[in-house]
Nucleic acid binder design. Sequence first.
DNA 1: TATGAATGAGGTTTCATTCAT
DNA 2: GATGAATGAAACCTCATTCAT
Lengths: 210, 210, 210, 210
Amino acid sequence: MTKKKSTRERVLEAACQIFADKGFHNTTVADICEKAEANIAAVNYHFGDKESLYDAVWHHAFEITSNTYPIDGDLPENPTLLDYLFSHTNALTHRIFCEEEAGLFPKLLHREIANPTLALDRIMKEVLFPQSMFLGKKVHEELKNHLDEKQIRLCMHSIIGQCVFFNFNRPLRERVLGKKILNEEEKVELARHIATFSMGGIKELINKNK
Amino acid sequence: MTKKKSTRERVLEAACQIFADKGFHNTTVADICEKAEANIAAVNYHFGDKESLYDAVWHHAFEITSNTYPIDGDLPENPTLLDYLFSHTNALTHRIFCEEEAGLFPKLLHREIANPTLALDRIMKEVLFPQSMFLGKKVHEELKNHLDEKQIRLCMHSIIGQCVFFNFNRPLRERVLGKKILNEEEKVELARHIATFSMGGIKELINKNK
Amino acid sequence: MTKKKSTRERVLEAACQIFADKGFHNTTVADICEKAEANIAAVNYHFGDKESLYDAVWHHAFEITSNTYPIDGDLPENPTLLDYLFSHTNALTHRIFCEEEAGLFPKLLHREIANPTLALDRIMKEVLFPQSMFLGKKVHEELKNHLDEKQIRLCMHSIIGQCVFFNFNRPLRERVLGKKILNEEEKVELARHIATFSMGGIKELINKNK
Amino acid sequence: MTKKKSTRERVLEAACQIFADKGFHNTTVADICEKAEANIAAVNYHFGDKESLYDAVWHHAFEITSNTYPIDGDLPENPTLLDYLFSHTNALTHRIFCEEEAGLFPKLLHREIANPTLALDRIMKEVLFPQSMFLGKKVHEELKNHLDEKQIRLCMHSIIGQCVFFNFNRPLRERVLGKKILNEEEKVELARHIATFSMGGIKELINKNK
DNA sequence: TATGAATGAGGTTTCATTCAT
DNA sequence: GATGAATGAAACCTCATTCAT
């Protein structure tokens, strides 16, 4: 027996999807309410205004994604740098290529970054920064004796850039290849590539330093 | 003595900047005309409609950026793979961190990808694809005996991802560090890092294959 | 006690009158809303856009006119050709010279024919053609043994031409005579004239054929 | 050797056609100038404003049509009423079904009547009224001993109604039959029908009066 | 005599929000 | 707790006209 969802819930979920699809400014309140099969006034009634709904959507989306694909998902005991790299990267590829609700967060993020609203500052502080610390701390620990500060920062950039590029170039990819759904094996393969490639990059830098 | 620019030029340049700043949908014709000190009807008079102006802006922006920072700018004779990597990457970092008009193209691109209009297809075909071929051909040539097709594709992804991440994360960076202007030396340094890091990544893959 | 009409109704009726007065293109949404004492956005809210309102106006106007003055209004039992002629013609003169809402349909029709929009095709199929069949079938039945096909068609033309001329030359008439309101007797008299004149015309043709 | 027409002439002729096609309000100055291959300012320069151009168009169109198809074109010596009827009707059918410039006048007339501008008053006085006098006087002369004033007026109505109906229902006809071009024989045939039909109608009325 | 750039008034439509119920 | 009618601000676009050359 499926209990019917409350109006508030239906609006929130509809908003989540449409915001992820079209961004804040291109989404109309009417779009959302129609998809939610709710009244046009529902957004203002339940959330105050469009912007507050947008905030609620962020919370909702992040909750789901970080529960479904935690950044420290499969670290073994006494994890190596490679383990950290893989765990981080693997979480991101899974999030980015997820077709369910857990996949909406990266899409929202992409749109928000390209067209920041006031929400971005909060998101950076609450979500993006803590997340990057997970990997950042380990990288720093392992490399601080071999690379200088600036080099370490650049390595972080290289690693993260490879990951999020899957998110940022999605519209291009889908225009060329169509909307291709990846299976579990393929997602892991992508993560493994980035981890390996990055380990190679790091080694090269260490070598050069000698 | 500065000759006064024509209305058409003023509108085009104003549009270029505002579109780069706010994207197509968030930019109003009124914004543009005000900045250009032109009448509200100037856009329609000179360009037909907002969308055609947007097209013209793309042409303008790409022209400038690709003339100022050509992708094959400083290849030596008999260039190695590393030379190609550096040339490509160096052009991109210079484009992305350029504070003048030549820097508007990457910004436009970022917004367009996050919120595609009809212009994106054309841009992909005419600009992005040809550009990625420059590096792609050389990479393929050099690596086809050591890596399989899929690995080569992933390498390209890793290289380009590192470059364009500077473009995509700009709003984040500027929120953390403020709007920091890089000098020539710093741009080259970034390019050199990516080239080196990527060479390391490639070597690692080749090694693993043995 | 007059119950206040709904905004939708007020807009529809205002539109009906103004469209009849000035035609589709010369009528502004603002005109309509002002007359209806409604907000400028009321048209779009209730009807989607100006064109859909125009469609609704047609439905409304035709409904009223064909209920008030049905084309087969006063046929006796076993009607003769003259009865048909009179019934048809009498309905048209009453519609054309009606000063109330039922008189708006012919005015709309005149403007639409002079300046067709997409609505005309639909109106022809749904309204004009069925209506002309009412008389057409009887004429054909009665005359097919005395006149050839082409002659019958021309007779129909002559009959209808006389009727609708009252509609088409209204602006001229009103400029010469002022806006003269016909009483019941006068309308019937016009109808009777056309019926008689037309019977004479038909007889003449039959005579000539012998 | 065809001398190139002056800008003024080209604008006038283009305006004539477009006004006839779309009516005053739906025609833009830009449309006209484009068709005339003239500058956008040409209308205002040569004619002052759009309305004055419209006036000039009327003069032009009427000049051509009344020279090409004079209303008293083929009256024999000592013409009978039927001769007058035929001459008048024949001129009108030729004007209405003319595909050249001489055919533009009826089209302008139709649009003007449906959507009168200030020009209509002048046209009535200078064109329509004199024209209807040609037939009117003869009809009155011949029938004044057999029909009363009102009957005579109604007869005029019936005759003219049949003629101009070809003009007024053109958009309907063309939607049903496509744009069919009539040859000389067919135009005369239509005129002959109306003349005959009308003579029959008149006789019937006279008969009834006895 | 003629042009083409430029303008401002006014048109339709969209949309987040409000308000009475 | 929820609705749907209604609103006003603002967007894009059209077009007759003007003006400097």
